[in-house]
């Protein structure tokens, strides 16, 4: 069930350069949302910016064991995120969600590798907690699904890394890469992953070239791989047909909507 609510900002915290975590009070939505799903956020009482923008669930917020809200983490890149960074505690945002399919609930796997580039780390905190049985989502009680979760996380430079301590605290092994070598290993995150060696299942989120490199590596290793895609979206609910990606069909390929058929796809289903 998709909800359309006005949610007030509870806090706004700077996590890294141009990167903020915004916390929204929205109990019903937060109780329903699962890792890998997203929400559309919109500023009220303006037509510029006009459309909502999609943001992944960073994590739900608990108070005395009750789900009261959720966090998203965003990088200031354009008109909407610049305005978002100016929003103060107590002000409302319009929220539509939960949206999208979310990450697959894995079971019986040994070691899962999460691969993030740029601001693509944001959907993974909740997923780590779900996979390791730290927290339940969407009304499910927590249960451990895999033995080990590692996150391979690459950014351009050290001061853009956001959430690393939280990933560690959630129980993930963290491997970092920066393009300039200012944090972790120097180079691309997919090169870091290659040096680490195969895991039992891969999940990626980040820029397109990174996802393509990841999917090639998964093919080479014959490892199952899921990717969470980010495409320009106008509505987030499936009515505008903007956010399409090429998906294999019996007779070639067809465009499918990332907002309703994704954002998480099995790499084997994507027509590359």
């Amino acid at each position: 069930m998709t909800l359309h609510v006005a949610a007030s900002v509870v806090e706004q915290v700077r996590l890294a350069r141009d990167t903020y975590r915004i916390r929204l009070h929205a109990p019903a939505l937060a109780a329903a949302i699962r890792p890998g799903q997203f929400v559309m956020l919109r500023l009220p009482n303006t037509t510029d910016p006009l459309l909502g923008r999609p943001f992944a669930l960073y994590d739900t917020v608990l108070e005395n064991g009750e789900v009261v809200g959720f966090d998203v983490v965003y990088l200031v890149v354009g008109k909407m995120t610049r305005r978002l960074a100016e929003i103060r505690v107590g002000e409302p945002l319009e929220v539509v969600g939960p949206l999208g399919n979310g990450f697959a609930p894995l079971t019986g796997l040994g070691h899962v590798g999460l691969v993030a580039g740029g601001i693509g780390q944001t959907p993974f905190l909740a997923y780590i907690r779900q996979l390791l049985g730290e927290r339940g989502y969407g009304g499910q009680s927590p249960s451990r699904a895999v033995q080990r979760v590692s996150i391979f996380y690459g950014v351009r430079t050290a001061d853009l890394a956001a959430g690393v301590d939280e990933f560690r605290a959630a129980g993930a092994e963290v491997y970092l890469a920066t393009e300039d070598g200012s944090l972790g290993e120097k180079g691309y995150v997919t090169e870091l992953l290659r040096r680490h060696g195969p895991v039992d299942h891969l999940v990626g989120c980040g820029p397109e070239p990174m996802l393509h490199a990841l999917m090639r590596l998964a093919d080479e290793w014959r490892t199952s791989c899921h990717v969470s895609l980010e495409t320009p979206m106008a509505c987030g609910v499936g009515i505008c047909f903007s956010c399409v990606t090429r998906v294999k069909t019996s007779d070639g390929w067809d465009y499918r909507r990332v907002c309703v058929d994704g954002p998480v796809f099995d790499a084997a289903c994507l027509a590359r």
């Binding site: 037509t47 510029d48 910016p49 006009l50 459309l51 008109k79 495409t231 320009p232 106008a234 505008c240 047909f241 903007s242 956010c243 399409v244 990606t245 067809d254 465009y255």
Partner: peptide, 23 residues
């Protein structure tokens, strides 16, 4: 109809452009 290649929409000042292509 398969429709147009993405990007299919872009926001403009208080509006948006779309070229979905009757997908």
């Amino acid at each position: 109809r398969i429709g147009n290649p993405p990007p299919r929409t872009i926001e403009t000042a208080s509006g948006m452009l779309n070229a979905i292509g009757l997908d």
